[in-house]
Design a protein around this nucleic acid. Structure first.
Lengths: 234, 234
DNA sequence: ATGTTGACTATGTCCGACAATTTCGGGAGG
DNA sequence: CCTCCCGAAATTGTCGGACATAGTCAACAT
């Protein structure tokens, strides 16, 4: 059960086409995008499909649609957009950018979790940490358990927004990163840090937990940079 | 030009109905939602409309759709969801939650902006701050300029993800907060802090800028809490 | 007991049509 | 020549139906 799934192929095609248009015509915030019917005819797709693809951009705050007026860019996504699947080019900056945003969110999340988690949540975090360690030492694929572990931390903040936003960033990361490289089990070096992290949260030590989360993210960032570097060499 | 627009009424109707179903049936992560055709028939809407409404949830990572299997919840949004428009009830927690997530993002954004902004971006931030002060002292509506000012800071990070995610949070804030209360010009007290914030960013002083942003967010949170409290009294 | 097939379900996509709204140009009047 | 008003065009919002594609599950045959 992969919790993070990429968009369908046809809708990805729409986004890729829009990206190319935005790039080739240097469209910025406030500029108007092609009409849905034009885009649909140009790509040989149905208008409903094009609408749904653009709808996801609207939900992310990238574009705004106005009845009768058209669809306009709400933010600058120049230099190749990143939150969406790039099928061919892999940019090192895209990885760094998702991590740069995840960083303050994850750190604040563990801080809040350490302060506000109730007994049941602390117990669940500790249990998942033990399960994660067992799977890790058995040499199996630990990513699913790792995902559940961090999801438990996000739930312990009592604020579902943390989990939702970080989920979005993970999906972007997945689309950009894991697709071309298969299943790299990124952040191998960060796993031993999970045990003290869980213990700090259970103990209610917010600052130690924040420190450990910072170090975990540093490890992930370093691993991502290394793989990206290898790719650039090839 | 309001940069933040709520979803259409029909699609809001779909989300409200789904929220009520999730709440009344206590659905959590992994549970299955009603099929699109059922939902469409029950609400008297077209299936395409229902699909688009759910699509925005999919883009936000709230649900995942599997061909043939159905649509399932990806995260827990129990206790009334927050990132989406509640038409009647206004929950104090919803406001606090969006602010709790905005906080680390905005603080990190000004920190990065202070470090990495180029000359043109620093000039634009300073210019917008002066314009904001002028509009404010003239007693006019300063929210549009304020939005452009903060957008310039997000752009100066060189990472469009900051702007996109914060835009989403602002839209949630708008849907939940501004709709019932009209146009409250929230955070009045925080405006004088914008001048030193802009100067710190222009000067490249990341920590001072982060400190000032923290104080601005504290002011906004206090104002939101006060208004919410007044509402609860009534 | 087990493996396979087939019906059923649900999402993905397409088409055509009309409604609602904004935009823009052209014509009447000053 | 300029201004104001109106109507046509453009564009998104919604609807209904249809078929394709893929997962689910139970009945069936081995």
């Amino acid at each position: 059960m992969d919790p993070i799934a990429p968009a369908s192929h046809k809708q990805r095609q729409v986004m890729d086409a829009l990206l190319e248009i935005i790039d080739s015509e240097s469209l910025g915030a406030g500029d108007r995008l092609p009409a849905e019917v034009d885009l649909a005819r140009r790509l040989g797709l149905g208008r409903g499909t094009v609408r749904e693809a653009i709808k996801s951009w609207e939900a992310m705050g990238i574009v705004t649609r106005n009845k009768g007026a058209g669809t306009v860019l709400a933010t600058d996504i120049s230099g190749h957009a990143l939150q969406l699947p790039l099928s061919v080019t892999l940019e090192a900056q895209s990885l760094a950018r998702t991590l740069a945003v995840r960083r303050p969110l994850e750190i604040e999340a563990v801080r809040i979790a350490a302060r506000h988690a109730d007994e049941r949540q602390r117990h669940e975090i500790r249990g998942l940490m033990l399960e994660l360690m067992a799977v890790y030492e058995a040499g199996e694929d630990w990513r699913a358990v790792d995902h559940r572990f961090h999801a438990a931390i996000h739930a312990a903040t009592g604020n579902p927004l943390f989990g939702q936003l970080i989920n979005q960033l993970l999906r972007a990361f997945h689309d950009i990163y894991e697709a071309p490289f298969g299943q790299p089990q990124l952040g191998h070096a960060s796993l031993p840090l999970h045990r003290p992290l869980a213990e700090a949260i259970v103990a209610g030590d917010a600052e130690t937990a924040a420190d450990l989360m910072t170090r975990i993210l540093d490890e992930v960032a370093a691993a991502a940079a290394a793989v990206t570097f290898r790719e650039e060499q090839a």
